[in-house]
């Protein structure tokens, strides 16, 4: 695998007022690399993506995309948002949503073109969504919509795929399918993936490294280096158990005291 870097964090720091979200984050994301970003609620996972998209001002350091400071979004980025039920009554079908990933940024009318249609139908086929091409997005199931979202994110051959909890609200089977789809598209396109999730298990087989955020600090490394009781206990500043069972990983007692809903199998 090429070690060419797609995304560079250079001592990047972000704070809101006095609260430091993360500090001196230094990380180089290589081409084709799959990194899971995990951590409890409020640990700064989603704002990390916002910073990469240039929507938040860093309080220190820099983030560079393809050697240039990040700007307001980029065509080199494919973005997969969290699943949200789409409104009904919008003039938008699955294939239209997909096409916007290819040429939605261009001026003028979306005139029919055989070249575009070909790309769109190839992509629909690749994610197994040919049968729902003409379905209004408000009528798609969660798994169907997220499959279209993956297709939309990769159709323009981005060099970086950012996924913000793309599996939340999906059942286990759909989680597996969508995670596998993102991974296979990464392998075909050679794009790097930054995958924000609160549950590492659906992507455990695919990830190269883990970026674990907690308490304004972070750890980076392979899952075996980071997802360990001693490492995470040190990160959280108190006793945390990492339990492995049948290929699944759970972090117990990782919650901040005011977030009891996080006290569950990660």
């Amino acid at each position: 695998m090429a070690t060419e870097s797609v995304l560079e964090f250079k001592k990047a720091s972000l704070s809101f007022g006095d609260k430091s979200i993360w500090k001196d984050l230094t990380l180089s994301v290589a081409k084709g690399e799959f990194i899971a970003v995990i951590g409890s609620n409020g640990s700064g996972k989603t704002v990390l993506l916002k910073a990469i998209l240039g929507q938040l001002q860093l309080s220190g350091g820099a983030i560079e995309l393809l050697g240039k400071p990040v700007a307001n979004g980029s065509r080199a980025i494919g973005y997969i948002p969290q699943h949200r039920q789409a409104d009904t009554g919008l003039p938008l079908r699955a294939k239209d949503l997909l096409r916007m990933g290819l040429d939605g940024h261009r001026f003028g009318l979306p005139l029919p073109s055989s070249k575009t249609n070909k790309k769109v139908s190839e992509m629909l086929e690749a994610v197994g969504a040919t049968d729902i091409a003409n379905t209004p997005i408000g009528q798609l199931s969660g798994g169907q919509l997220q499959r279209i979202r993956v297709a939309q994110a990769v159709i323009d051959n981005p060099q970086l795929i950012l996924a913000d909890e793309p599996l939340s609200a999906l059942d286990l089977k759909q989680q597996g399918l969508v995670a596998e789809l993102i991974n296979s598209r990464r392998q075909q396109n050679g794009a790097a993936v930054l995958f924000v999730t609160h549950d590492v298990n659906p992507v455990l087989d695919y990830i190269d490294r883990v970026l674990y955020l907690a308490n304004g600090q972070f750890r980076i490394g392979t899952p075996d280096e980071v997802l360990r009781s001693d490492v995470l206990s040190k990160l959280y500043g108190r006793s945390v158990d990492v339990v492995r069972n049948q290929g699944r990983i759970a972090v117990l007692g990782s919650s901040d005291h005011d977030h009891h809903d996080d006290e569950k199998w990660l």
């Binding site: 980025i77 948002p81 919008l90 994110a153």
Partner: peptide
């Protein structure tokens, strides 16, 4: 409207992704 049709549709129907893709 004809000039901005596509990016305006993108920004109206799928604002989060449009912004990530650099649509103003």
């Amino acid at each position: 409207l004809l000039v901005v049709w596509r990016p305006l549709s993108f920004a109206s129907l799928d604002p989060e992704v449009a912004e990530a893709r650099g649509v103003p």
